[in-house]
Design a protein around this nucleic acid. Structure first.
Lengths: 188, 188
DNA sequence: CTGATCATGTAATTCGTTACATGATTCC
DNA sequence: GGAATCATGTAACGAATTACATGATCAG
């Protein structure tokens, strides 16, 4: 009875890039949208079956190179559903859960050292994410030049800038927290 | 059987600020941690009962001013559980779901106008969040000066800077997408 | 031949939201 | 008197993760 959820659109969107298996969709998600939207096998495989029943994708056995598998392609109706979502003006689902911020909020009773450590860990987590994204950046540039698809690159650039901003902020706060903070405007 | 989840710590953390009812905890969450961690009545009330059974909080009827209600306070053990969490070095749960980014990722087939509109809406959402946070900023400053609690203010400052950064980025991308983008470096 | 990767799925569980149900009190 | 807010809870549902189960193929 359920209509389409966000996961449905992840699947439809990935299938617009070409015929794919559930396994391939999951791999794509892991190297592209994972940083702002995830999906697990436990969602993807049932979702593909569901979308097929709805006529939005068409699956077929695809044992070409000896591997037993099932690949899917977008139907015309599936493409329309995807476009409807892309251009719909319903409020965007934006959600953030950050345990580091939560801890910091409650960290008043901790020592300055412990609070600095919290900022440090928050910063380290985001610096690591930034570095991971930067690693795949060259591949994204190459891919953008090859097929002219610039959006994945734009989104990646945003992800890098975003992670870098947070990392930088946390590092500044860490220093500020760790320093005794001389009363008069002392500079490091 | 479940150990403590993040929601448990939200409740414990709020109770460290003083004796509170479930209703008050929810109100506090809504004006403070909501932007990086939410909690609903459907979680808070059962959680309070559960924490009481675990001996981490102590509840009592508190019908002082005619209102039928039940307030809770942190036990010594509850305080210890909270501190253990605050100083534990398990990886921080950090999660981001952003439907705007997801749409942009798949928006290659759209027109430039439609893509610009997506950036605009992302930017507007974050600008609105920034403005909301800025509205409560003076109250946070006053409160920080009164009781010396600076962490809520630090977290709020981060939230504002963060939302502002995202909003600014999106606005730039919107302009860049909408403009025909003359081959030679034309300036607006 | 052995471990990594490819490949597909289900079941159980957890986490969280939303809707519902109820009723008192306070403010206008 | 009526609306807003205070106040507590439950039930149903939905979204997503994790663990489990299975087996083939490929690279070393």
């Amino acid at each position: 009875m359920g209509e389409l959820g966000k996961t449905s659109y992840v699947v439809l969107g990935m299938l617009r890039l070409g015929r794919r298996t559930g396994y391939e969709i999951k791999s794509l998600v892991d190297v592209s949208t994972r940083f702002f939207w995830t999906a697990s096998y436990g969602q993807i495989y049932p979702e593909l079956r569901r979308l097929e029943k709805l006529g939005l994708v068409r699956g077929r056995r695809d044992d070409s190179d000896g591997r037993r598998r099932r690949s899917y392609e977008l139907t015309a109706e599936g493409g329309r559903a995807l476009d409807d979502w892309l251009t719909s003006d319903e409020p965007l689902h934006i959600e953030l859960r950050n345990e580091g911020m939560l801890k910091l909020f409650f960290s008043e009773p901790l020592s300055a050292r412990e609070r600095a450590e919290l900022w440090r860990r928050m910063g380290a987590a985001h610096a690591e994410k930034r570095d991971q994204l930067e690693e795949i950046h060259p591949a994204a540039v190459a891919s953008a030049e090859k097929d002219g698809h610039t959006m994945p690159l734009q989104v990646l650039d945003f992800g890098i800038a975003f992670a870098d901003f947070v990392a930088g902020w946390c590092e500044r706060m860490e220093r500020e927290t760790a320093e005794p903070l001389g009363a008069a405007g002392g500079r490091s």
